[in-house]
Each structure stands twice: as C-alpha cells, then as structure tokens.
Amino acid sequence: MLATMERVSILQKAEALAEMVIESKIGQEYFELLYNLRHDQGAQDKIKKFTSLKDLFEEVQRFGKYHPDYKRVNLEIRQVKREMDIHPSIAAFKRAETELQAVLDEISHRIGHAVSPFIKVPAGSPFFESGSSCGGSCGTGGSCGCSA
C-alpha cells in the first residue's frame, strides 16, 4: 500500500484530533487521575492484591464448585474487588476513563456515520448502551427488556 498525500493528510488530521482530545478538559482530567492512581500506594496495594487473587480465582474456576477452595476464593475476590472499586483514587479514575471513552465513542460514531450511515462503528459496551443486559440480540423477542 502506497502512502498518498491524501492518506498522509487524513492521518495528520487524525493526529490533530487526538491531540485535541488529550488537551481537552476530559483528557487532562483523565491523565491527572491516572498519574494520581499510579502514585497512590494504597490504591496500588489494592490492585496488586486483587490481581494476585484473580490468578488464584482463575485456577479455582477451572474446576468450578468441585475445587476445595471455591467458596472461599469466590467470596474473597468479591470482597477485594469491592474494596478496590470504592478506593477514592480508583473510583475517580474509572469515572474519568468512562467519560473519556464516551467522547472517543462519539467521535468514532460521528466520523463513521459522516462517511455512511451503514458503517458499523465499534464503540463502548453494548451492555450499557441499550439499557438492558443483553445488547438487543438475545433471541427472546424483547422479553428481557432489550430492543430486539
């Protein structure tokens, strides 16, 4: 594939758009909270604890309820995950990450649909966008509350 001046121009405009997102209030907040998260030792300890427990959980999941530590590990990982999720630095970062993702999804959607309304644009989590837990293609005819 040869690089044409048109492609180079498009890539330069995409880089300029990315720079605008980075310099935006949402982008700056995201990077500030990421920095805070990386330098918060309490948050890092909770993340490390969760990660190590997650490895154990995955091993236990291979055997399911027949593993001797299944209940203990299952309960413990839920408690550790909850503690991690409510830590102020982690919760603030996750909110900022979600806001930034929404902006990036909107940009992708607008660019894709400016080209053609039939272009499929991957964006966000379909579980949260449709207002239901299935994403709209569950095969129940909408009885689960989706927009099937």
Rank of each mutant, 00 (worst) to 15 (best):
D105F: 00
S24P: 01
I107K: 02
A123G: 07
S147L: 14
S143D: 05
V121W: 07
K46V: 06
A102Y: 00
V8C: 07
Q28E: 09
Q28H: 09
K49V: 07
R78A: 01
N36G: 11
M5Q: 15
I111K: 11
I77Y: 03
A3K: 07
E6V: 10
V21C: 02
N36C: 08
T51Q: 03
Y66W: 03
I26D: 00
Y66A: 13
K71P: 08
S116V: 12
A123N: 10
G64C: 01
S147E: 15
S133V: 08
F127K: 15
F128K: 12
C138H: 06
A14Y: 14
A102I: 05
S132C: 15
S147T: 09
K49T: 14
D85V: 07
R95G: 02
E83D: 13
Y35L: 04
M20A: 08
G136N: 09
G124D: 00
A43P: 01
G42A: 13
Y66S: 14
E23V: 00
Y35S: 13
K71I: 06
P68Y: 03
L34E: 02
I26W: 00
L56C: 11
Y66V: 03
E129C: 06
S132D: 15
Y35H: 14
L37W: 01
M1S: 14
P88Q: 05
L37T: 01
Q101N: 07
V115E: 02
Y35M: 08
I119V: 15
E29M: 09
E59T: 06
V121E: 04
S9H: 06
G64S: 06
E83N: 03
Q41K: 15
H113T: 11
P122A: 10
S52V: 09
T4G: 11
E32H: 06
F93H: 03
E83G: 08
C138S: 13
V80G: 05
E99F: 08
G42P: 04
G139H: 02
E76C: 07
E59M: 09
V73E: 05
K46M: 14
A123Y: 12
H87V: 05
F128G: 08
E106I: 00
